[in-house]
């Protein structure tokens, strides 16, 4: 069978119809993704492929998967490195007062 994302027909429980308020970082994830697409730096199918190949697919929220996939593609294309993203993210979290 296909990957973890290929879930049509799988058993599932009741559908949670609750809605969370979209957070700023989720809007940003959406926007960066679209802007990279607009620049020809990423296609929908590349992003889908990157999402499908995430090991933590089932544990991440929707926009967490988007961020992880965008990061994966940017590193794959040599636009950014994992180290510089790690470093900058750590510095941002320190700035937020998080460990």
């Amino acid at each position: 069978m296909g990957g973890v994302h290929d879930m049509g027909g799988s058993p599932g429980g009741p559908i949670d119809r609750g809605q969370h308020e979209v957070e700023d970082w989720e809007r940003l994830a959406d926007a960066i993704n679209a802007a990279l697409g607009g620049k020809g730096l990423q296609t929908t199918d590349q992003h889908r492929r990157a999402i499908e190949s995430l090991e933590e697919y089932r544990d991440l929220s929707y926009y967490e998967r988007w961020v992880a996939a965008t990061e994966k593609l940017l590193v794959e294309k040599g636009v950014l490195t994992s180290d510089e993203i790690d470093e900058r993210a750590a510095s941002i979290r320190r700035h937020w007062g998080e460990p």
């Binding site: 296909g2 290929d6 049509g8």
Partner: peptide
């Protein structure tokens, strides 16, 4: 087919 990689044909 069980073609590996990214495909848009669902398993079911």
């Amino acid at each position: 087919s069980e073609k590996p990689g990214h495909v848009r044909t669902p398993g079911y």
